[in-house]
Each structure stands twice: as structure tokens, then as C-alpha cells.
Design a protein around this nucleic acid. Structure first.
Lengths: 225, 225
DNA sequence: GCATTTCATTGCGTATGCATTAAATGATGC
DNA sequence: GCATCATTTAATGCATACGCAATGAAATGC
């Protein structure tokens, strides 16, 4: 995130952003507890804006407020992952359906196709970070094209909740070579306005991804991420 | 809400509850703007806990913060209603599917069947308030039985967002006599563990309800509720 | 008149300090 | 030793104060 933009930001905004980053980076470890005053010092500001940021992050499911026990970075159990993937499956499928129905012009779908191409390249280079980035862009853009702002924000919220865990599992699973076929099918369906196909294809894609992740977590006995 | 419990509540909690009530009751009108200090005075507390409550309510989509313009009670357009109903359709269908798959014992489903019976009674008495209450309980319980805590909280959030509008439309539409047939079908499917039937039936039920509401809003040219 | 600048107002963002209350510690009785 | 109660500690919840910055009004220039 741009440091220049940050200068003219309110302290609460800064707290929000920096806490998010620290959470995603694992700098604030999952399951760890922190005091308001401690976080305030880390961010070199008073408790007030920190409290506000923490409240918002609690609403987004990233922190848990336990008065006098500490502010906990919520850890994810495999069951939580299942919950989240189920929500993502339903809402992204809806988004795919709506995107197809909206009959977008091909140029509106450029971001989507670029993301798909980037994933191909990333896989060819075995570049997992690049793949994850492109995959993120695909899903973000898909949901944006769906045009439902609630779906959009919920999906982003859920994606944020699994962000940390995703980084971990990404390097444990086999290269997602086949997954881009699904992405292409979804793309084509949207382009051709085949809403039912878009929906069903994406749904299958997501259900499959969920199964892989859940088995992975079970196999490696990862209880909290 | 119990007044005794409220005594031992923190001011922020009280602010949260009372603002919610005022919003649902229309005492804070949709689209209206308010200053922090104004709300603080109404609730006879300082700005600090009000700010905290307002932040949380913003996160729940009930308020919109527009610094120096006022805190706006977000109004719902017909498009917003469509968005919300679409989310509810997907997530409640998922919940129905999961509830069926979870193979609950019949006694676990008692709340559900009671709610259905209550709707029958309410319809027989043409008691719309009682019907709305029972319908609410049905959907709440359905989602609870689904066992996905994220689905649960999202559905509650969306239901809160449409709460006001629902009250209005409720009295404009014909008595929902047929709708209880759907509820019963969903109930039976859950009891018998037929997850696909539960899902599809509830989905149809919701899609139908959405169509009715949307047409109603169009017909009456209700632009903001 | 209309546009532009200046100025006053005031709502908000943040820091700070105090009151509250939950947890931890120690004291007392059994 | 162990349980119970008093005491201490310290983190939170809230009120308050203050400065900044945005907004609207007034004043000035064109």
C-alpha cells in the first residue's frame, strides 16, 4: 500500500490497514492476544483510533474482543474453512450466473481473461505466488461482474478470513494445473450469456477446491491457522 | 428487550441496541442524517460510545458514515432489495441442504414445525404480525439448523437490512396462504434427510418470494424504504 | 450579477485522564 | 493444604477537551 496516500489518512484508517497487514502477514499470530495499549504503541498512536479499528476488524471476523483477556487474532479451524468455502461456493456461483445474465461486452471481460492467462503463465513457471495473485484477481473480478454489492463485500470478507490459511495450503497442494480449465469454461459461459452453465461450472469448481483443501488439512492435521 | 439487563450493559452496547431499535422502528427515518452529538444527546451519553456503536452499525450496513454530512440511515432501493433477496436465497438454500444432511432428530426440528403451525394459525386469523413473527422464526431456525455460523450471521445481517422494508411490503401483498406449503415441504425434506429436495424447494420458495416483492415495489413505485 | 477568496463556524478525529470492574494476588480461617 | 474472602492491580469503558479541517457565509473583485 502506498506510503504517500497513508500520510493523509486518519489514524483509524491507518490502524485498520496496518492491523490487517500484520494479521495477514502473521506478524500478529493467529490465536495470539493483545492489549489495546500494546497495539496503540506498536502503531504509535493513542488507544482511541486503535479501538475503532479493532471494532471494525471484529465485525469482519478477523479479531475477537475479549475484554480484559486481550484482543485475539481469530484462528481458523478446518471446520471454519469448510464454512467459509461453502459460503464462497454459493455466492460466487450466484455471481457467475448474474455476470452471464448481464451480457457483458467482451472488453468488459478482459480482466477476467487476463487473470486466466496469467494463471497459465504462472503454472508454466511453477510460480505459486503469481498464480495465487492471478487466481485472486479472477475471483475478485468475477464477483464484481456479478454486480451484487452485497455479494461482493461478503466474498471479500470471507476471502480475507481465509487469506492466511490459503498461503499455507497453497504450498502444500499439487500445482493447480487443471483448475484453469474450469476458469476458462466459466469465462466462456459468461461471454456467451449461458448463466446456468456459468453457475454450475463455477459451483463444481468451488466444491472441488473445497474438497482438496479439507483433505489437505486433515492429512496434515492442521488444527488452527 | 429487557430493561433490567440493560442496566448492567455498557454504554456502547446500549447505544448499539437502541440505535438498532430506532432504525427498525423508523424513528430514525431511512435516508435521514444525524450528527454524533445529536445521537449522543438522544441516548444521554457521550459521543465516544455512540461512535463505537455507529461504526458497528456501519459494518452491518444499517448506517452510512459521511463525515461532516451526517450519519445516514441507509435507505433501500428496489435494487438493494433484489441484492439482499438473492443472497438470502443462496445462503438459506445452503442451510436447508446442510440441515437435511445433518440428519437431525425430530425433536430438534420442533421449533421449525411450531413456527409452521403458528403461520397456519396466523393466516387463519389474518394476523399479519403473528405471521411475520412466525415466518421470522422459521427462517432463523432453518439457518441455525444448517450449522454454518457464517451463514447464520450473514443471513441475520441481511434480514436486518430488509427488516423495515419487510414491514411495509407485508401489508401490501396478498396473504401468503400458499407459502406455508413450501415451508412444510422443506421441513419434511429436512426430516427425511433429502438434502437436494430441501435445497431446491427452499430455493424455489425464495425465488418466488423475491419476484413478488420486486413486482410489488415496482407497482407501487417505492423507490426508498 | 457572478466568481473567488476570506473568514467564522462547527463537527470530527484524536489524545488524555479518570472511573469501573474483572482478574490476580495475598490473607485468613478451617 | 485448601477454600473463601479481601485487597491490589491494571485494562477497559467512557467523558472530556482540543485542534484541525471542511463547510457555508460574507466580502471582495471583476
Amino acid at each position: 500500500m502506498n506510503k504517500v496516500l497513508r500520510k493523509q489518512m486518519s489514524s483509524s484508517q491507518r490502524a485498520l490497514l496496518e492491523l490487517r497487514e500484520k494479521i495477514f502477514a502473521g506478524e500478529l499470530a493467529p490465536g495470539s492476544d493483545h492489549l489495546e495499549s500494546e497495539l496503540a504503541e506498536q502503531l504509535s498512536m493513542s488507544r482511541t483510533p486503535v479501538r475503532e479499528a479493532v471494532l471494525m476488524l471484529e465485525g469482519q471476523g478477523l479479531l475477537e474482543l475479549r475484554p480484559r483477556k486481550g484482543i485475539r487474532v481469530v484462528p481458523l479451524s478446518p471446520e471454519d474453512m469448510e464454512e467459509i468455502y461453502d459460503v464462497l461456493t454459493e455466492l460466487e456461483s450466484l455471481a457467475a450466473e448474474c455476470a452471464a445474465r448481464a451480457s457483458h461486452k467482451e472488453e468488459d471481460l478482459r480482466f477476467l481473461s487476463t487473470a486466466i492467462d496469467d494463471m497459465d503463465v504462472a503454472i508454466a513457471n511453477s510460480d505459486l505466488d503469481a498464480w495465487a495473485d492471478a487466481d485472486d484477481r479472477f475471483h475478485t473480478e468475477l464477483v464484481r461482474l456479478g454486480g451484487n454489492s452485497r455479494v461482493n463485500s461478503i466474498v471479500h470478507m470471507m476471502s480475507d478470513q481465509v487469506r492466511r490459511a490459503r498461503m499455507t495450503t497453497l504450498f502444500m497442494r499439487p500445482l493447480p494445473t487443471k483448475s484453469n480449465e474450469d476458469h476458462r469454461k466459466v469465462y466462456e459461459a459468461i461471454k456467451d450469456g449461458e448463466s446456468q452453465v456459468a453457475r454450475d461450472t463455477h459451483r463444481e469448481h468451488r466444491l472441488h477446491a473445497k474438497r482438496i483443501i479439507v483433505e489437505l488439512l486433515k492429512k496434515h492435521r492442521l488444527r488452527f491457522l
